[in-house]
Design a protein around this nucleic acid. Structure first.
Lengths: 159, 159
DNA sequence: TATTGTTATACTCTATAACTATA
DNA sequence: TATAGTTATAGAGTATAACAATA
């Protein structure tokens, strides 16, 4: 190895909170995928859809897409995958023949219960580098940052 | 509007710190792009490369890629763009004829000085939803999370 | 043999437009 | 006319493999 890279000056990058936010998110996301989602052949996105459908049976694809912050066109492939794996079910909506109501299958509910438990366990373990008080404070700050704008006024609506 | 989506139950998602970390990062990233980088036709990735080359003149493409956490193949297109815009310069390395040493142009240094100032300003404004103490604490926690693993032991090396 | 810049390739996300069937 | 699901498409970002020149 001719260059270790250890002596590189990151300059302003290391003074930008957005840089650290992105670094922490990338590391967390990779860790979640490696140690947790590989075990169930899941991704955070698929987990989110399953969780929302499980808690809100009968939602349309568009409603789930809005909740996840995705376009409805992106939902098609996601629901296809989950339906092929027998975890989720498209049923014709009784009130609108354009819509398809989403429901968990019995297998899906059982599967998601296991994934959910494992997710909470990983959450506790990964964030163990923080004290309980720090952890609570971090979540509180992240929630504010998830809806704030550059003028300092929190957004009232999503997207 | 037939569905407001306001009454959706997010279940376990809202109990996972990784979810809030991702939400905060997405919102911050979009805000940075919209209110700051559009002004200079820059992205956070391009800004990072410029900052590192500016602070470490003469680095090779591979060294910059390692610093950014990217593969060296991804650097080609990035350096191409910055070189075409006259901000950066590839020079033959005096010590290794395989390598190309990267340097800022005079125009690039001037440009980056303006972008850097604007970035720091946006950083102050966007994170104004946090108190100064909170902000310091957030950065401290994010730095720890950027290198931590699920077993609670911080990594000693990057990637 | 190993490494540098490069090209090609592929896979995931994301965003947009347009089509059909319904409302 | 507007909306739901769908398809197609295009752009980023990311990852891998391979090649020629050089170490």
């Amino acid at each position: 190895m001719t260059q270790t890279g250890a002596e590189i000056d990151f300059g302003t990058l290391h003074e930008l909170t957005g840089y650290w936010l992105r670094s922490a998110q990338i590391n967390t996301y990779r860790n979640v995928r490696r140690f947790f989602f590989d075990e169930f052949e899941m991704t955070p996105g698929l987990f989110g859809v399953l969780e929302i459908v499980d808690r809100n049976p009968g939602l349309t694809q568009t409603a789930v897409a809005n909740a996840m912050g995705n376009d409805r066109s992106a939902m098609v492939a996601i629901i296809d995958r989950l339906e092929k794996r027998g975890l989720i079910e498209r049923r014709p909506s009784p009130v609108d023949r354009r819509s398809k109501a989403l429901y968990m299958t019995a297998q899906g509910k059982k599967f998601q219960a296991g994934v959910r438990e494992r997710a909470l366990q990983h959450n506790r373990e990964f964030f163990a580098v923080l004290s309980a008080g720090e952890h609570r404070q971090l979540v509180d700050m992240l929630k504010r940052l998830a809806t704030s704008t550059s003028d300092g006024q929190p957004q009232t609506e999503w997207c």
